[in-house]
Computed example of a mutant assay.
Amino acid sequence: MIQILEEPVGSTYKQLISLAFKICDEFILVKREQLELTEKTKILIEELKPYVNTVKKQEEWPGTRLLGHHADIYYFNCKPELEELLINKAKGLYRWRHPDLLEDLCFFKNKEVWLLTTAHEQLGFITTTDRVEISMIREIEGIMIQEIAVSYHEV
């Protein structure tokens, strides 16, 4: 697992999103039902509509669990048009949050979380053990990361 130590912004953000689109096949964005939408968010949802695979009402998604509330989770395939949209709509990874955008951009590779963000907490993690992917992440100019060894022990 790799922890992103500082928010990727500008060209670092663009490179990270482009890499995610090369590696992953799906991503999500979240709309919490208890939060009011701004005009900017409504426009974004309209722009995204043609690309939505499905919308699910869920109380949890990678990195977040709600208590007593649900959110609409929008699922998308990683398509070039959407890569450009994500790059142009936000200037940084943790900018994906209410009130101006949908929240918690997360990418999936083969149904497994690859990039997890909790934007309000300014946390981002990449889960990969693929040496080629790790090398490509390290090559992103300006990215500040820390590799975290994760092991599981039966108790």
Score class of each variant (00 low, 15 high):
residue 52 V to R: 15
residue 93 L to R: 05
residue 106 C to P: 00
residue 126 I to M: 09
residue 151 S to R: 10
residue 100 D to I: 03
residue 125 F to I: 02
residue 38 T to V: 11
residue 70 H to S: 13
residue 97 R to A: 03
residue 132 V to W: 04
residue 150 V to R: 10
residue 141 E to Y: 07
residue 119 A to W: 02
residue 43 I to F: 08
residue 130 D to L: 08
residue 56 K to I: 14
residue 145 I to N: 09
residue 44 L to E: 15
residue 103 E to D: 06
residue 113 V to Q: 02
residue 93 L to H: 04
residue 48 L to H: 11
residue 150 V to C: 10
residue 143 I to G: 06
residue 83 E to V: 05
residue 74 Y to L: 09
residue 90 A to F: 09
residue 72 D to R: 15
residue 69 H to F: 15
residue 123 L to Y: 11
residue 70 H to N: 15
residue 65 R to N: 11
residue 128 T to F: 00
residue 71 A to M: 13
residue 153 H to I: 15
residue 55 V to A: 14
residue 134 I to D: 01
residue 108 F to C: 08
residue 105 L to W: 00
residue 78 C to N: 13
residue 110 N to W: 00
residue 46 E to Y: 11
residue 140 I to G: 08
residue 94 Y to P: 01
residue 85 L to V: 01
residue 50 P to D: 07
residue 111 K to H: 00
residue 89 K to E: 07
residue 133 E to P: 03
residue 73 I to K: 11
residue 52 V to H: 13
residue 108 F to L: 00
residue 144 M to V: 11
residue 130 D to I: 05
residue 130 D to V: 07
residue 102 L to P: 01
residue 63 G to I: 11
residue 67 L to W: 15
residue 141 E to I: 05
residue 101 L to T: 07
residue 38 T to K: 12
residue 60 E to A: 13
residue 60 E to R: 15
residue 41 T to Y: 09
residue 151 S to I: 10
residue 133 E to L: 04
residue 112 E to F: 01
residue 86 L to V: 06
residue 114 W to S: 07
residue 78 C to W: 10
residue 114 W to K: 02
residue 113 V to M: 02
residue 123 L to M: 05
residue 104 D to L: 02
residue 68 G to Q: 13
residue 66 L to C: 07
residue 122 Q to S: 04
residue 88 N to L: 05
residue 66 L to R: 04
residue 144 M to Y: 10
residue 70 H to M: 15
residue 132 V to T: 06
residue 112 E to K: 04
residue 42 K to P: 05
residue 84 E to D: 12
residue 147 E to H: 12
residue 40 K to L: 10
residue 140 I to V: 09
residue 100 D to M: 04
residue 104 D to K: 01
residue 73 I to T: 11
residue 64 T to K: 13
residue 113 V to L: 03
residue 105 L to S: 06
residue 115 L to N: 04
residue 119 A to N: 00
residue 40 K to S: 14
residue 110 N to E: 03
residue 41 T to F: 07
residue 104 D to G: 05
residue 109 K to M: 02
residue 105 L to D: 01
residue 115 L to V: 02
residue 135 S to L: 06
residue 137 I to N: 00
residue 151 S to G: 12
residue 139 E to R: 07
residue 124 G to A: 12
residue 74 Y to E: 12
residue 145 I to H: 10
residue 153 H to M: 11
residue 131 R to P: 07
residue 138 R to F: 00
residue 91 K to Y: 12
residue 52 V to M: 08
residue 113 V to I: 06
residue 148 I to T: 12
residue 148 I to H: 09
residue 131 R to S: 02
residue 90 A to W: 07
residue 154 E to A: 15
residue 154 E to T: 14
residue 79 K to F: 08
residue 154 E to S: 13
residue 121 E to K: 02
residue 39 E to T: 13
residue 105 L to G: 09
